[in-house]
């Protein structure tokens, strides 16, 4: 779990890593193996996580531009 999360989070190029995940998981039969890579690449969110016992807390964050007053 930790290795999987670290790989997705630490990849310097989210898009390139997402394509790598697609190649790697194309023939996988259990689960997609793409979810977090997809979140990071498609939404351009920053992912962080903490593990406490059997609980994993995953946080996805992005910065949005403030709406200009009309």
């Amino acid at each position: 779990m930790r290795a999987t999360l670290d790989e997705v989070i630490a990849a310097p190029d989210a898009q390139a890593h997402y394509l790598t995940l697609m190649r790697r998981t194309a023939k996988r039969v259990d689960g997609s193996g793409l979810g977090l890579g997809r979140v990071r690449a498609e939404s351009e969110m920053q992912l962080t996580y903490t593990i406490e016992g059997e609980n994993v807390l995953l946080r996805a964050e992005m910065r949005l531009a403030a709406e200009e007053p009309s």
């Binding site: 697609m22 998981t25 194309a26 023939k27 996988r28 689960g31 997609s32 793409l34 997809r38």
Partner: peptide, 14 residues
Amino acid sequence: MNSSCFKAFVSWIC
């Protein structure tokens, strides 16, 4: 579609 379904398309393309 969620990522599981997305992967079905990836497998098709492969």
